[in-house]
Simulated assay, not measured.
Amino acid sequence: MKKVIISFLFLCSVLVQLKAQDVFQTRGFCIAAPSAKQLNTFIKFIEEELAPRKVNTLVLRIDFNYQFKSHPELIDGGALTNQDVKKIVAACKRNQIRIIPQINLLGHQSWASTVGKLLKVYPEFDETPHVKMPEKYEWPNADGLYCKSYCPLHPDVHKVVFDLVDEICDAFEADAFHAGMDEVFYIGDDKCPRCSGLNKAELYANEVNKISNHLALTKRQLWIWGDRLIDGKTTGIGAWEASMNNTHQAIDLINKNVMICDWHYERPDQTAVYFAMKGLSVITCPWKNVNNAVAQTRDMINFKKAATSTLKPRYEGMMQTIWSGADSFLAEFYGQKGTSENSEVNCFKALFNEINQTK
C-alpha cells in the first residue's frame, strides 16, 4: 500500500511538472556575456542556479565581446575566445539549456557619448552621420539622440553583420539568433541619401525579414524585442516600450516565424495577447520589478488557459532580462555587493519561484 501511495504521489508531481512545462515552453534568462575573468563564476551560476530552476533558454548578449575571425577589426577589448564559448556551450548542453546569442542589429549602435564598434570601424554605415556624439550625453536633446542606427539600405552593411551573425551562431552551436532591434529611434532619416522619404514601417519590416531569411538558410530562427511593433500613441505606452515613429505597422509585414520578446518594465502591460493575435509567438520579459514579474507570469498562465487551440501555442513563456552586465549581476547575486527589494536578483528569484509553482 505504501508503495502505491508513493507511486501515486510521484505521478502527481510529474504531471504538475509537465503542466508547468506545457505552459512555459520557454523559461528564459537573458544576460550579457561575462568577462573572461568571471567565466568560471558564470558557469557555476548556470550549473547551480539556472539548471535547478529549470531554465531552458539562455539568451546571451555578445555584441563585440567575442574574438571574431571573420572581422577581427570589430573585436572589443577582453573579448571571449572560442575556447571560452565552448565552456559555456558544454555547461548548457549538460543541463539541456538552449543558447541563443545576441548581437544588436539596426539600432543600439552607440551608447551615451560613445559610438559602438560597428560604426566606429565602418562610419559609412551610420544612418545619421550628421548627428555628432556629445561630450556629455543628456536626454532629451535637440538631435533626438538615444542610440545610433546603421542604415539598413547601405549596400555593404549586411555582408559585415551577417558574417558576425553566422560566426557567433556557429560558435555557440545555436539554432536561433537574437538581433535585438529594440528602441530604434533613428530610421528612415530625412537626411539619409538612401532612406529619406521611405515608409519607416516598411524599412523596419524589410530589415527584420532580411535577417530572418538569412538565418533560415541555416535553419535558424530570428528573435527580436517587440517594442517597435507596438503603437506607442494609441496604447499610451510611449516611446520606450513602444514606437512613436510609426514602425508599429511593421507587425503586419514581418515573417510570422519571428519570435517576439515582449518587454515591459514599468507596468505589466498585456501586449502578449496583441502579438499572439497577429500570428506571432511571444515571450513576456520582466526586468527588476518583483510584483510586475509575478503578475506577468500569472497573466501568461491565464492567456494560455483562455486561448483558442490556435492561439495557445503562441504564448511561449517567460524570460528574465538582466541589464546590469553579467559581472555586476553575479557580484550582487553572490552577495559581494548590496541589493534592494526590486532588483534583478530578487526579480529573477521571484519569477522562477512563480513559474515552478505553476499547477
Rank of each mutant, 00 (worst) to 15 (best):
200 K>G: 06
183 E>H: 08
221 Q>P: 04
193 P>N: 10
177 F>L: 09
172 F>S: 04
173 E>Y: 11
192 C>I: 08
171 A>C: 12
184 V>Y: 04
206 N>F: 08
205 A>C: 06
182 D>W: 07
223 W>V: 12
238 G>T: 04
211 I>M: 08
197 G>T: 07
208 V>I: 11
193 P>Y: 10
166 D>T: 14
230 I>V: 15
195 C>P: 05
175 D>G: 12
196 S>D: 12
164 L>T: 10
176 A>M: 13
205 A>S: 10
187 I>L: 15
195 C>A: 09
207 E>R: 06
192 C>M: 09
213 N>A: 10
168 I>Q: 10
197 G>W: 09
176 A>D: 11
164 L>Y: 11
175 D>K: 13
208 V>S: 00
177 F>T: 04
169 C>G: 12
223 W>T: 08
228 R>L: 11
169 C>M: 15
237 I>C: 06
203 L>G: 04
235 T>E: 01
167 E>N: 11
218 T>V: 10
184 V>D: 04
204 Y>L: 00
203 L>E: 07
237 I>D: 06
182 D>T: 08
180 G>L: 09
202 E>V: 13
187 I>S: 01
176 A>C: 13
226 G>A: 08
170 D>I: 09
229 L>K: 00
186 Y>I: 07
236 G>L: 12
233 K>L: 02
229 L>R: 01
212 S>K: 05
183 E>C: 07
184 V>G: 06
183 E>F: 07
236 G>W: 08
199 N>F: 02
188 G>I: 05
215 L>G: 03
231 D>A: 02
173 E>S: 15
198 L>D: 06
170 D>V: 11
191 K>Y: 14
195 C>W: 03
193 P>G: 09
228 R>I: 02
216 A>I: 02
192 C>F: 09
236 G>C: 12
207 E>N: 14
218 T>H: 15
175 D>T: 15
189 D>H: 14
236 G>V: 13
194 R>W: 13
224 I>D: 03
170 D>R: 13
227 D>I: 01
229 L>C: 02
238 G>A: 12
188 G>K: 04
177 F>V: 08
220 R>E: 14
228 R>P: 01
169 C>N: 13
164 L>I: 14
240 W>V: 13
239 A>L: 13
238 G>L: 05
190 D>A: 14
236 G>P: 09
222 L>C: 08
169 C>P: 11
172 F>Q: 05
205 A>I: 02
232 G>R: 00
184 V>K: 05
185 F>M: 03
222 L>Q: 06
234 T>S: 10
186 Y>V: 05
211 I>V: 15
211 I>F: 05
230 I>L: 14
207 E>P: 02
205 A>Q: 02
192 C>S: 11
204 Y>F: 13
182 D>Y: 08
207 E>Q: 14
194 R>H: 15
